[in-house]
Design a protein around this nucleic acid. Structure first.
Lengths: 214, 214
DNA sequence: TAGATTGTTAATCGATTAACAATC
DNA sequence: TAGATTGTTAATCGATTAACAATC
């Protein structure tokens, strides 16, 4: 029971496979081998086979995988085509950047409204999306169908905002605040950690510099 | 030999510890225990001790860790205070968002210029940072001290741009293009994968919906 | 001293990789 | 048939967790 089915790391690689397949010419019955995918993506070929086996029909020995089939199965598994409506909470520097960045639409994410407590922002529009008062969030969630919440508020406000989202029925949250949040089972809080990425880069530079000194 | 010293996963958690410590009141000799850090951050307490042991002086049994010492050691290890100069390549939707988002400065990252091939953009300024022609990148890197490159170009152009950055002496690259890139040893290419995060959220929603149907 | 908390050694767990059998 | 490529079973590896010894 509780067969999560697929590992988190595999799941995170799937979009990469799909993007690669989409970059291949797709004229009918073309095929691709696990080893060519692996070398293009910098992965092990056994790993590629295992990942693909988890979501798609079998490949054919000696031939490989049919590109169109693989692509179709990946798209079906990842739910490409289904669109998710989202609200963004917190229209500061980061929130503004996320709001004006149009690229999420390519991944099926439609931000339908943003919320902030700062009255100067309320009533404005960013890239066609209205900024509403945070007080209106509960009513908005009751009224509109929203499946994803994006948190771009300061850490100190994040848990309160998350609670409001959960109260409103949101089941998946993208958290850009640099804090750990608690949520009931069934609600996914996915933390995006810019600071961690930057720490990795900065630490690498520090280490490389020290190497240069020897 | 080749003692990397610290695991990548530990390193990624360090900024979280630091952020938590910074959020604590710091009036002189205050202390904090591994278990309280662990519960605040949703981690195991043994893991916290191990992570902290990798970068800081010992805590004291029965007392815990001195907040100010721990904070100082984390800041030193992560190189807080040292600023890194960066160039951004690719001023599309995403590049523009990254460029106008001011928050990176808090993490020691200073974007000093952006580059694009589109002549309509060249010569403009975003948030005080000049947008230059991609052709000027090599000369710029020779002239200015730049340690980090940020790639926000389409996947098809990413490897070429990476090569130019490496040629110019950049040793750490933050790659937002959804492709795998190859780089010589000594150069870190850290991929930021928005699509993976969104896939996780979207998949979770799909699974939860199916649960609801039973 | 007793108890809380740290640090370490051993066990567990999960993911990756290697070896090999199956098959077109 | 021979060879390339897939899929699977077993071994390895690394990280996390549990058990315990050390110490203030």
């Amino acid at each position: 029971m509780e067969q999560g089915g697929i590992s988190k790391l595999t799941l995170q690689r799937l979009p990469t496979y799909l993007a690669y397949l989409q970059s291949l010419p797709n004229d009918g019955g073309g095929t691709v081998s696990a080893s060519s995918i692996a070398s293009a993506l910098g992965l092990g070929e056994v790993q590629v086979r295992k990942d693909l086996a988890a979501v798609s029909v079998a490949g054919k020995p000696k031939v490989g995988y049919r590109i169109d089939e693989l692509r179709r199965d990946l798209e079906a598994f990842l739910g490409c085509g289904t669109r998710n409506r989202a609200v963004l909470v917190g229209v500061g520097n980061l929130g503004l950047a996320l709001l004006s960045y149009g690229g999420f639409a390519d991944y099926g994410l439609d931000i339908v409204a943003a919320f902030d407590k700062k009255s100067a922002l309320v009533g404005t529009t960013v890239d066609g999306k209205p900024v509403l008062s945070i007080e209106e969030l509960p009513a908005f969630l009751r009224r509109e169908r929203v499946s994803i919440g994006i948190l771009a508020v300061p850490g100190s406000a994040a848990q309160t905002c998350l609670n409001a989202l959960i109260q409103g029925g949101v089941k998946a949250v993208w958290n850009f605040a640099p804090v750990h949040l608690t949520a009931p089972k069934g609600v996914l809080v996915q933390r995006e950690n810019m600071a961690s990425s930057l720490a990795l880069l900065s630490y690498h530079l520090k280490v490389e510099e020290q190497k240069d000194l020897t």
